[in-house]
């Protein structure tokens, strides 16, 4: 399992400093949830780790626990499912292998089918994404990410476009399937952060700063009506409101 240390990360976009000198740690095999309002720079932080920093001025020290570079070891899940409309569900899950080498092996195909069954989409292999609901599409995106089997998983508000019940179901599913990965999940929903995070960080202010990590007890995913979750949710919301005033 891979732990990540980010030290003195600074990022500017079009001459504006988004954040400077941020340092944090992503513990190996744990979920870190990064909470913050829209536009505070959460996504930029995620892009920094993913290496998607074109047109940004970046300075950061990113250290993986095994001492190797991160490139090629990151999986990505975005708010939009990013399914390619011209590929079937199965081929969308196989997108990584398809893009890297032209031939997809039988074993990979079987693995993709297995993952689709894991996310609860048995029998929809040959559908086009347009024929799926929003929740189903995000499940396919989850399977596509699992297909990559990479040690660091970056998720940019992956559930925010879904309705409340679907969102809770997918949170449980993701927590279950990614239990032993190192995950950084970005969200603006305190409940989501508290249900899923082994540690919860808040990014706020301008230029943005990180708060001390909050570590709720019990293993995720936590129930929505757990007293601890509800209490911390209230506290986080109050904190976010104070800063925005």
């Amino acid at each position: 399992m891979l732990g990540i240390d980010v030290r003195n990360a600074s990022l500017a976009w079009q001459g504006h400093s988004v954040f400077s000198d941020l340092s944090f740690h992503l513990p190996a095999g744990e979920w870190t949830c990064l909470l913050g309002q829209s536009g505070v720079g959460k996504s930029s932080l995620l892009r920094l780790l993913a290496g998607l920093t074109e047109q940004m001025q970046v300075r950061a020290e990113i250290i993986a626990s095994d001492g190797k570079a991160l490139a090629g070891r990151v999986a990505w899940m975005a708010q939009q499912d990013l399914l390619l409309p011209w590929l079937s569900v199965l081929d969308n899950v196989l997108l990584g292998p398809r893009l890297r080498h032209s031939r997809v092996t039988h074993a990979q195909r079987e693995q993709a089918r297995y993952l689709l069954s894991q996310v609860g989409l048995t029998g929809l292999d040959s559908r086009y994404p347009a024929a799926l609901s929003g929740g189903q599409r995000q499940r396919v995106a989850l399977a596509r990410m699992l297909m990559e089997d990479r040690p660091l998983v970056l998720m940019d508000e992956p559930f925010s476009a879904l309705d409340a019940v679907t969102r809770l179901k997918l949170q449980d599913l993701a927590a279950h399937l990614l239990a032993d990965r190192t995950v950084l999940l970005i969200t603006h929903d305190p409940l989501e952060a508290l249900r899923l995070g082994d540690q919860v960080l808040v990014l706020q202010g301008s230029p943005a700063r990180l708060t001390e990590p909050l570590r709720p007890q019990d293993a995720p995913p936590r129930a929505v009506d757990q007293p601890q979750v509800l209490e911390l949710q209230g506290r986080l919301l109050r904190q976010l409101m104070e800063v925005s005033e």
Binding site: A50, L52, G72, W76, A78, L82, L84, W86, L95, R100
Partner: peptide, 27 residues
């Protein structure tokens, strides 16, 4: 752009991005 970024993270080179992402999306 998001499709192209995903392709990059999945390890697609520039030619593959053109032929498998840009071209079908331009159809």
């Amino acid at each position: 752009a998001a499709w192209l970024e995903l392709a990059r993270i999945l390890g697609a080179d520039r030619r593959t991005q053109l032929l498998q992402i840009r071209l079908p999306s331009a159809l």
